[in-house]
Simulated scan of single mutants.
Amino acid sequence: MKIIFSRHGNTFPASMKAKWIGGEADPPLVLEGERQAGQLGTALRSARCIPSATFCSPLQRTRTYAEIALAISGARRPTVPDLRLSEIDYGNWEGLSNIEVVRRFGAREFFDWYRRSIWPMSNWKTERSVYFDAIDSFLGELKRSYGPTETILVVTAHGPLKCIGWRLMGKFGNLPVAQLARVDTGNICELEMGNDFLQPVTWNEPPGVLRPPVQPK
């Protein structure tokens, strides 16, 4: 099974300083974010990767992103919101810029999360074990519900992607920790899933890396 994870597009215009926003905040996509969704849809159509099913978090920024992409790709099945894909509630980090987080909570705590996906000691409102269990449950359900030749699209915020990346760290030498710790807005992670494996094909790449399936000779 192919799973294409996509982080939603921009929610801040270029003129505005980006801040930490978690699962309690739900700003809409800005025009650039909608354009990024269009790029994903075009890439899916060009690569003939029309998803059998599409999932998103309950946030409007992921739902809108998925809907735009699907409309352009030609897919007909609706997007299904799933609470297990919810964004982290960043607690004391909410509404702060990166610099402000470093000043208040220290560079080590910030960069351990930013560069290595190590859950911080700060007062986040989301419990790590519960969050990881929810994501593992979602992946397990995909494995049970879809066949080996199907493609699934999942649009999320950053939290689920960082947690999946953390699970993969150290297992694939061609993907360093720093790469697996981050997915930029509008970028995708393509993974292959089998009965006993979850293997990244690409991580934190623009949607244009998608290629049509190789036809047997």
Rank of each mutant, 00 (worst) to 15 (best):
M16V: 13
P160S: 09
R103V: 09
G194A: 15
G159V: 01
L175D: 02
L153M: 09
P213N: 06
F12P: 01
C163S: 11
S129I: 11
V209L: 14
A66F: 01
A69E: 01
Q36A: 09
P200D: 05
P176I: 14
F138G: 06
S52W: 03
P176G: 12
R77H: 15
G74R: 10
R115N: 08
V183P: 00
V155D: 00
T149C: 13
R116S: 09
R108S: 13
L40G: 00
M121Q: 14
D112K: 01
Q36T: 08
T42A: 11
C56A: 14
C189R: 01
H8C: 08
F12T: 02
N10M: 12
T42M: 09
R108Q: 14
Q199Y: 13
A37F: 04
S97F: 07
V177D: 10
F138S: 12
I118R: 10
V102W: 03
N10R: 15
A53V: 13
D133L: 15
W113L: 06
C189G: 04
S52F: 05
A47P: 02
K143S: 15
T62Y: 07
Y65A: 04
F111P: 01
F197A: 10
W166V: 05
S86P: 03
Q215T: 08
I3W: 02
G147L: 10
E190T: 06
R84K: 13
L70M: 11
R115I: 04
E190G: 01
N187R: 00
P212F: 04
V154C: 06
V130Q: 13
A134R: 15
T54M: 00
G38T: 07
E24G: 06
S97I: 07
A47N: 03
V201H: 04
D89A: 13
H8E: 07
P13S: 09
R63N: 02
Y114H: 10
D184P: 03
T151A: 03
Q199P: 04
R84V: 07
W93E: 04
R211M: 08
